[in-house]
């Protein structure tokens, strides 16, 4: 099992947001988590990534069979968990190239591999840039600084492509994207899907799921997954909204 979440409860500032959530993700699977605003979608994503202040009060998060709850954010990343942020942070003065090379070499060191040479790194970067239709100049700029919404999201998927995680959680990667950018991002994700990794795609709208076709769809409401189904559930939600599930 790639990811197993059992009866997860998460509090922020003493307020319980996730209230007993269960989820299993196997290698090769893509799960979509949908739901209205304010139901805990981002909280779930950030709790899995290990953000400070997201306190797990009950339950388990097992990644490849081991609990990750005592791990630092960097350790979770090094083990192969990736979070595509809903709101990627701007970091003035740190270039993407510089940042990614530092990150990749920390991953390589963790996996007892020698540091990547500059030329191998650049070769890899060029390939992944093509995949996401990222032009050259962008990677020389500071991380997310002055990026458009679309550039920020493409940059998230680009980082995912570079780090090659086992488990990727994409938090509203479609928000703020026009249809062309959405296709580019979805194509990037699809190109990276394999039998050896898994995806959790968090989205508000069904639209993204036309391009990233999930194996399972879950509805998150009030801190719990209240309904699960196949990809057709997304269409049903698109038609009927969430109200019918709330009684």
């Amino acid at each position: 099992m790639l990811l197993e979440i059992k009866d997860l409860h998460v509090e922020i500032d003493g307020k319980e947001i996730i209230r007993g959530l269960n989820l299993k993700v196997k290698n090769g699977e893509t799960h979509a988590i949908m739901g209205p605003n304010g139901t805990g979608k981002s909280t779930l994503a950030l709790a899995i990534a290990g953000k400070e202040g997201y306190e797990v009060t009950q339950g388990e998060v097992l990644y490849k069979g081991n609990s990750i709850l005592d791990m630092s954010p960097e350790e979770r990343s090094l083990k192969g968990i990736f979070l595509g942020f809903q709101y990627p942070v701007e970091i003035p003065g740190v270039s993407i190239t510089n940042f990614l090379r530092t990150a990749i070499n920390e991953h390589r060191e963790y996996n007892k591999q020698p540091p990547l040479s500059a030329s191998d790194f650049l070769k890899n970067m060029e390939e992944k840039k093509k995949l996401l239709d990222i032009h050259s100049k962008l990677t020389n700029r500071s991380v997310n600084e002055g990026f458009s919404g679309g550039e920020k999201k493409r940059n998230e998927i680009f980082q995912m492509a570079m780090l090659e995680p086992s488990l990727s959680i994409l938090d509203e990667t479609d928000s703020g994207l026009d249809i062309d950018a959405l296709k580019v991002v979805a194509n990037g994700v699809n190109a990276l899907r394999s039998k050896d990794n898994g995806f959790v795609v968090i989205t508000h709208y069904q639209r993204l799921l036309d391009y990233i076709i999930p194996d399972f769809v879950h509805v998150l409401f009030d801190g719990r997954l209240i309904k699960s189904g196949g990809k057709e559930l997304a269409l049903e939600l698109e038609e009927r909204g969430y109200e019918w599930l709330k009684e």
């Binding site: 953000k51 630092s72 954010p73 942020f85 510089n98 940042f99 990150a103 920390e106």
Partner: peptide
């Protein structure tokens, strides 16, 4: 946190910043 979530240890994240 953003830098750490990419696998960069806290000390190095601070240094980078």
């Amino acid at each position: 946190f953003y830098l750490r979530s990419r696998g960069i240890c806290e000390a190095n994240a601070r240094l980078l910043m």
